[in-house]
Design a protein around this nucleic acid. Structure first.
Lengths: 332, 332
DNA sequence: CTGAAAGCGCTTACAG
DNA sequence: CTGAAAGCGCTTACAG
């Protein structure tokens, strides 16, 4: 493989001129520029970016920490982050942590060791909190929640949850179940707060037995729904904290002979692409995945450039979409 | 930020010893090792991996080229690639090409410029063919097809397609539609070949009007299905070349008042997680996503190490799963 | 087992 | 606009 010296020799100029021709052409005469370019083609030169990165102490890489790339919502956000990164000359290192703190730490170490310039966390409760980040590691939290610290972009989870439950109440539901994520997940906390606020506003007393805990997977939705099926006094509607659990729940209810939405209304959260195509199509909250990714990347870039973000928090609008999985409660 | 020299000074040893203590501890005495480690902790040293990579001319990074990370099948394969990569000390750079050749080239350039050590292509028809790869760029094609060149791992697409159609025929179907991907996509070619072979074996004449072209998205399944709905002499079964199109198709058929599988049987391909949870659950072909990813990464590692792969092609078994979207044809 | 020294391929003041 | 030279932070023969 040829290096910059080979090009310089071939072009009959100095190594410095070749370097400038490549990274700062304005500082080089047209004549030299031409010589350099024909020399580059002749010797088939490819600059060694590893050397350049090393020299300039920037890797032009960011790591995206995600609990599970297989989750379509995260996949959408990542795609958007990557689009933006590519536009700005950055690459994205995939950091699928599978929820393991050890793996997450390993990825953070990549920025400590200069292999990456910063990190975007796609989940609020990724094991490493903002204040625990090693010094020098810049980080923005996308898909964050109210309790998160540091630069972040998020939607108003509590407000969105309230909107969903308000709607169910407006349809006439009084006994409304909730299928949450894990107890300590900040999304769970925020969305549960919205659920409780809505009930309170409507003067409905919170019944603890109507809470089923899941972990945001289809599988957990499938299981948690069984808990409701076994109840004497079943809820007439369930607010699920994401679409995957809602999809699982619908499946279970159907298997138990309950019709959705006639016998039981179901709502989701996220609006993944399958939400529109399940049967019945899901009433849910659309998260602005594209915007979240783009904004997070932009914020990170500013942090990398050393800027202090005055406006640390960006709250993006979420949209409530009514589809076919909700209806007025059935009276037997 | 402290560097290796600071550590050496603090420990009272040479820079070489510190370097060895870190990368080849066996060559260093226990005494030195201790001195170095306490010095490292004292000055808060983090090795600059950019320097190490540069020096050793290896980036320990691979790029994964994928047309769309949002596709759950690809996401699964990537997750498996990353698991394996992490085990072996490699990172994965996400190369979502969105089907654009320019982007793909840009990612390949990353390995030409030493930012990555090799590439895994997740689609057979990614714009850059194996023989067009720049010299020095090692590449393995995962999820490949029969026509692909170079090191690859794939399933027997043709055989799997044949199994699906054979099954439909065994149920009594004679008029079997096919929903394909884009015409020039190798998956389309291979799976279509299987479809045709199956028909031929059963002595059924191929009817061109029963082919609807899609592009592997839910959206295209939705649309292509309309073509069948508009036919006088509708097929009684449709072989869809992936699950997403099958899910879209089911939606359309239901909207047109056709019952699945009573009026029309539908089959998919891939077995993404939603295939099990749509209504009716999908009869489909399970691709061994985990195995594909793992094997592809292992092959790439061997190529990076300079090995010539004698066994260039790995054909993995795929499994045909019968669920609820298929039944014997309805006779009016 | 250890250290002095060369060198990986670039970039970038510095002097002209 | 151009070149000679120093240096980024490591690794690794080489000699001891």
């Amino acid at each position: 493989m040829s290096n910059i010296r080979d090009v310089a020799r071939e072009a009959g100029v100095s190594v410095a001129t070749v370097s400038r021709a490549l990274s700062d052409p304005d500082k080089v005469s047209q004549t030299s520029l031409n010589k350099v370019h024909t020399a580059i083609n002749k010797v088939g030169y490819r600059p060694n970016m590893l050397a350049r990165s090393f020299r300039s102490a920037k890797s032009y890489t960011v790591v995206v920490l995600v609990p599970d790339i297989t989750n379509p919502f995260f996949a959408q956000v990542i795609r958007s982050i990557e689009d933006r990164a590519q536009q700005k000359g950055y690459a994205v290192l995939l950091g699928d942590t599978r929820g393991m703190i050890e793996r997450e730490k390993e990825y953070v170490r990549r920025v400590e060791t200069r292999l990456a310039d910063g990190v975007i966390q796609l989940r609020p409760d990724d094991a490493i909190k903002h204040h625990e980040m090693p010094t020098g590691v810049v980080c923005v939290n996308a898909c964050g929640c109210e309790s998160t610290r540091g630069p972040r972009v998020r939607i108003d989870n509590r407000g969105a949850a309230r909107a969903v439950v308000d709607y169910l109440i407006s349809l006439g539901h009084r006994r409304i179940g909730v299928m949450s994520g894990l107890k300590d997940n900040p999304h769970t906390t925020d969305r549960l707060a919205g659920y409780l606020e809505s009930l309170e506003n409507a003067g409905i007393k919170y019944d603890k037995s109507l809470l089923a805990e899941g972990d945001f997977t289809i599988w957990s939705g499938l299981n948690s729904a069984k808990q409701f099926c076994a109840m004497q006094d079943k809820p007439t509607a369930i607010f699920c904290m994401n679409d995957e659990m809602a999809i699982g729940a619908i499946q279970t209810f159907k298997q138990h002979g309950l019709r959705v939405p006639e016998d039981i209304s179901i709502t989701g959260f996220d609006d993944i692409s399958y939400a529109r195509y399940c049967d019945p199509s899901l009433t849910t909250v659309t998260q602005p995945a594209e915007e979240i990714g783009k904004l997070a990347m932009d914020m990170l870039l500013r942090l990398i450039e050393g800027e202090e973000l005055a406006q640390e928090e960006n709250v993006l609008p979420a949209e409530f979409v009514i589809r076919k999985s909700t209806a007025v409660p059935h009276r037997d």
